[in-house]
């Protein structure tokens, strides 16, 4: 098991990325990378392996759902767990997320504890 998992945080809002980064840093995670949309995320995943991806859905250029689908298509990235972090709480969003291959969802605004619970559960499972 990886003792220092590397996590990619994808959100078009700088503040949101920093909040997620901060919450994870406070829990002891140190290998954290940020990407500002799906395209940026794909480039970073291509260059560097990640143990977990936390992504927003609504983003310019490539949204979170498209990102999940793109990662599923590629053998190299298909096994990386993805958590969607979004303001949308509709069932439609949930089914879309599930279909596109996400592992878990969290609704914004989120409780840091919820985020950590989801992250540790998934990483612990791996």
């Amino acid at each position: 098991m990886n003792l220092n998992p590397s996590i990619l945080i994808v959100d078009d809002s700088r503040m949101m990325r920093d909040i997620v980064t901060y919450a994870l840093e406070c829990a002891g995670y140190t290998t954290l990378t940020q990407a500002e949309d799906g395209i940026d995320a794909l480039e970073k995943i291509e260059a560097h392996p990640f143990d977990l991806i936390i992504t927003d859905i609504n983003m310019p250029r490539m949204d979170g759902i498209e990102l999940c689908k793109a990662l599923q298509k590629n053998e190299k990235s298909a096994s990386i767990p993805i958590v969607v972090l979004t303001t949308e709480s509709s069932d439609e969003m949930k089914s879309k997320g599930k279909e596109s291959g996400a592992w878990a969802w969290i609704i914004k605004p989120f409780l840091p504890d919820d985020l950590l619970h989801v992250v540790t559960t998934i990483l612990g499972h791996r």
Binding site: K94, K98, A104, I106, I107, F110, L111, D114, H117, I122
Partner: peptide, 8 residues
């Protein structure tokens, strides 16, 4: 406020 799609 959160949930899992996959059985983790």
């Amino acid at each position: 406020t959160f949930g899992f799609f996959k059985k983790v």
